[in-house]
């Protein structure tokens, strides 16, 4: 399989350059199963995640959507009782491979969490945390990174005069955008967002949604949301999870206008969840 996917671009590149780029996948999830102790939380998940698009994951609480996004950067490993099988290919490499370095994966795949979780440090130190742990020490470069990342997260104008202040002084929405800036600082390839607006007020939510639209030009984004309208507003593709299985995965417009599965329709129309 690995060899197969690798040879593909070469063939297609000669034919139709642009189309290949549009259809390229960053992730290919193959028969993923996950257990918390004896309880199975993900069942035979197959999913391709496209490059430079926003992929939304929706479903009722407890359906496994948060668990799924956390397997994409192997954060589920932090819980000792979790067991997985199957494969996840990121850029054609199986991230469960024994030789695969998890730190390298997480550098390329950033994550924004449910609750804003800035470090108890200054705004500046929050942004440069990633570059610093990866060995960048040059003050001038770090300064540039801070400006660029905060601008990228649409926070620069609000905080440029108080970069040395503690990040806890920011509002919830600002903190979440700071967390996004912290992600951008290492120039990742993919950004995973686990219900990034669930702890925020409507105006802050709107700002984040606009930001996501802006970011997808440069990044591939996977976003878990409990809010169907949000998925409809910002995503290109949507996957509906139920009880650990993917029920339906398609273009967002298709999922919301003409779902194939009765359960998807019920959920979309608000009959449960």
């Amino acid at each position: 399989m690995l060899a197969n996917t690798k040879s593909e671009p070469v063939v297609e590149e000669t034919n139709e350059d642009k189309a290949v780029d549009m259809n390229k996948n960053v992730y290919k999830v193959d028969q993923l199963n996950l257990w918390y102790g004896k309880d199975q939380a993900l069942i035979n998940v197959d999913m391709d995640i496209p490059e430079n698009q926003v992929t939304a994951i929706i479903g009722p609480s407890g359906c496994g959507k948060s668990t799924f996004i956390k397997t994409l950067n192997r954060m589920t490993e932090m819980i000792p009782i979790v067991k997985t099988n199957g494969s996840i290919y990121y850029r054609d490499e199986n991230i469960f491979d024994k030789k695969y370095k998890v730190e390298q994966l997480r550098t390329k795949v950033g994550m924004v969490f449910q609750k804003p979780n800035p470090f108890p440090k200054s705004i500046y130190e929050n942004v440069v945390y990633g570059p610093k742990i990866h060995g960048i020490k040059d003050k001038k470069i770090l300064d540039d990174i801070v400006e660029k990342s905060l601008k990228g997260a649409a926070l620069w104008d609000e905080v440029k005069d108080r970069l040395k202040e503690n990040a806890f002084g920011l509002s919830g929405g600002q903190q979440q955008r700071l967390c996004i800036a912290r992600c951008l600082a290492v120039e990742p390839d993919v950004i995973l967002m686990d219900e990034p607006t669930s702890a925020l007020d409507p105006i802050s939510t709107l700002k984040i949604e606009e930001l996501v639209q802006e970011l997808k030009k440069d990044y591939s984004i996977v976003i878990v949301t409990h809010n169907m309208q949000q998925a409809g507003r910002i995503s290109d593709k949507t996957a509906f999870f139920l009880n650990g299985e993917i029920i339906e995965y398609d273009d967002t417009s298709t999922i919301f206008s003409s779902p194939q599965d009765k359960r998807t329709e019920d959920y979309i129309s608000g009959r449960f969840g």
Partner: peptide
Amino acid sequence: MNNRSNHSISKMIEEKASNRGMTK
């Protein structure tokens, strides 16, 4: 803003990653 065209930071990180003996 467009970081696809300017990959300096991620490239730097990749370069540093190869000689990070101290961290290891």
